[in-house]
Structure formats: structure tokens, C-alpha cells
Design a protein around this nucleic acid. Structure first.
Lengths: 117, 117
DNA sequence: TCTAAGCATTGACAAGCATCGACTCAATAG
DNA sequence: CTATTGAGTCGATGCTTGTCAATGCTTAGA
């Protein structure tokens, strides 16, 4: 889960000599980092973070019209935030008639959570 | 750690009647959510996420000049990213002579990590 | 004192993002 | 069929962010 970048051994060098050398960049790990960054970025808004929190506690039981009055934004704005979360793969929705019920995608937070700990 | 928003009980309503009612917004929890969002937002960039990763593994042993060649950005840009992480309270630095050694602030990731799990 | 190196800051610009109002679409009730 | 309601999309707007070139500051060595 770690990114594992190689570091050049630290050496005090004489004047006129650069202290650092270029280091190979591991591409595979970068992709992991990018994916985790997408998830973190999606959580980087208080409204979206609280949306995830609410949905985790009421999975599949909350329609959008119930979420709107929880936040001081318009319905289209909330719809936008839900779309961001959906595109980050963190939530998904299921329509039943007029209503759309959202839920947190299982294990979508796992990678980030594991890396954090 | 949870945000604990109150939800109005879901009811199918008759036509001409709104389905939702306004809900009280808990201010205290919002502040927690905002703080976690700040941390998440700071991690919402692949470079910053990898910076945190490197620093966690080499705490207090890496100078900025060693970090620069790990990423394909200029030194000022990296300095900017480090500043963002510093302002989010996630890293701090210590100068020794010419070099600045960065390290991850202990427990700065704990709140988010706990909430995620 | 002078010079060079490490790092931070500033200024500028393009790209991205949050927000809203207006609109569209789908489903339901009458 | 028509009106209404929930929800997503679009376009416009103002703010934020990532980036680099240029510059400044501090320290160390000559």
C-alpha cells in the first residue's frame, strides 16, 4: 500500500557539487497514489464528507430530497457533489420510482484507510 | 467521530405535499467534518500524498533537495505543496544549516483514519 | 566580503472547481 | 393526457489551485 519512493542516500557535499541525484520513479506505485488521491480529493469537501458519513449510517435508505435540507446548498449543487462521489467510485445510487437512494460502495474507502494506518 | 446528522423519517407523501422537512444542522459535528475535509483535501493531490508517504518512512531524514527529483515538478512547486501540508497541520519542518528536514506530525492523520474505519 | 547552494516567496497565468438558476427528463397521481 | 414532483444536466460566474519563472533570504564556504 505504501508508495515506496527510493531516496538517494543523504550526503553533505562539498561546495560546487549538487547534493541530490535523480531517482527512478516507480510507475506502479504512482498509480496507487493517484487513486488514493482521487478518493481523498472527493472527501476534501465538508459537504461530501458529511454525505458519505450520512450514507454510511443510512445505507440505501436516504433519498436525495432528504439530504438537501441537511446542507445549505441548492439541490443541483448537492446533485453535483453526489456525482463527484459517484465518479470517485465511493457511492452509487438506485432509483425507485421518483426517488434515488444512495449508498456507499463497500470497501471503496478501504485502500485509503489502510494506507493511513 | 461520526457526523450524526438527523434525518427526517422517510414517508411517501400524497401529491401536492413535500416529502422532506428541514432538519436541524448540528454545528459541532460540522467543525469536525470541516477539519477532516482539510486533511483529506491536502491528501487530494498525488504529489502531496506521496510526500506524506515518503516522510512517514523517512521522518526527519529527508531534505527538500532530495524530494525534488522524486517528482516531475519544480522546486518552488514542491515547496508550495509542502506549505499546503504544513498549513493542514500534517507535516512540519526543522532547519539544520542549509537544509530543511520535514516530518509528519504525529497523529495528524488519526482523526481521518478513525472516521474512515 | 563575496559567492554559491538550499529553500521560501511572489507574481502571473491557465486550469479546475463550487455554486446557482434555468432547463430537461422520468415517474406518478388525477 | 396533463400537471406535479424528484432528480440530473447545462451554462455562466466567481473563486481556488497547480505550476513555473523570477526573486529574495539564509547559511556555509572560499
Amino acid at each position: 500500500m505504501s508508495v515506496d519512493l527510493e531516496l538517494a542516500p543523504k550526503q553533505k557535499r562539498a561546495a560546487g557539487e549538487r547534493c541530490c541525484e535523480p531517482v527512478v520513479y516507480p510507475d506502479v506505485e504512482r498509480q496507487q497514489a493517484e487513486h488514493m488521491a482521487v478518493v481523498a480529493k472527493a472527501l476534501g469537501d465538508p459537504i461530501r464528507l458529511q454525505l458519505v458519513d450520512v450514507l454510511r449510517k443510512h445505507a440505501g435508505k436516504v433519498c436525495v430530497c432528504e439530504l438537501v435540507p441537511l446542507f445549505e446548498v441548492s439541490q443541483p449543487t448537492l446533485s453535483h457533489h453526489l456525482k463527484v462521489l459517484r465518479q470517485a467510485g465511493m457511492v452509487d445510487s438506485e432509483r425507485q420510482g421518483l426517488w434515488a437512494y444512495y449508498y456507499v460502495v463497500p470497501d471503496s474507502l478501504k485502500e485509503l484507510c489502510t494506507w493511513l494506518s
